[in-house]
Computed example of a mutant assay.
Amino acid sequence: MSEYTIYHNPRCKKSRETLKLLEDKGVNYDVVQYLKEVPTKDELKKILAKLNVKPFNLVRKEEKKYKEEYKNLDLNDEEWIEVMHQNPKLIQRPVVVKGNKAIIGRPPENVNELF
Results as ranks from 00 to 15, higher is better:
V31P: 05
V31S: 03
V32K: 12
Q33K: 13
Q33H: 11
Y34G: 11
Y34C: 09
Y34E: 13
L35T: 08
K36L: 14
K36Q: 15
K36M: 13
E37D: 15
E37M: 12
E37P: 06
V38M: 12
V38G: 10
V38I: 15
V38A: 12
P39R: 13
T40Q: 02
T40P: 03
T40H: 01
D42Q: 14
D42C: 02
E43V: 04
E43I: 05
E43M: 12
L44F: 02
K45C: 07
K45H: 07
K45I: 07
K46V: 13
I47N: 06
I47A: 06
I47Y: 05
L48D: 12
L48R: 00
L48H: 00
A49R: 12
A49H: 08
A49E: 14
L51C: 03
L51D: 09
L51W: 00
N52P: 09
V53N: 10
V53F: 05
V53M: 15
K54H: 14
K54P: 07
K54A: 15
P55A: 05
F56C: 06
F56T: 08
N57F: 07
L58P: 01
L58W: 00
V59T: 08
V59C: 00
V59M: 02
R60Q: 10
R60G: 07
K61Y: 05
E62V: 11
E63N: 00
E63L: 00
K64L: 13
K64R: 15
K64I: 12
K64F: 11
K64C: 08
K65A: 14
K65C: 07
K67V: 10
K67N: 14
K67D: 13
E68C: 06
E68W: 09
E69C: 10
E69A: 09
Y70P: 09
K71H: 10
K71Y: 06
K71M: 13
K71W: 07
N72A: 03
N72I: 05
N72W: 03
N72E: 14
N72Q: 09
L73D: 08
D74G: 05
D74W: 01
L75W: 02
N76E: 10
N76G: 06
N76I: 01
D77Q: 11
D77M: 02
E78N: 15
E78S: 11
E78F: 00
E78V: 00
E79Q: 14
E79I: 01
W80S: 09
W80L: 06
E82G: 10
E82M: 11
E82N: 13
V83H: 08
V83Y: 06
M84H: 09
M84S: 08
M84T: 09
Q86M: 10
Q86F: 02
Q86D: 15
N87D: 12
N87R: 08
L90P: 05
L90R: 01
I91L: 10
I91G: 05
I91W: 10
I91H: 07
I91P: 08
Q92W: 02
R93N: 04
P94I: 07
V95S: 03
V95R: 02
V95W: 02
V96K: 04
V97H: 00
V97K: 00
K98L: 08
K98A: 08
K98Q: 11
G99P: 10
G99E: 11
G99K: 09
N100H: 06
N100Q: 13
K101R: 15
A102S: 06
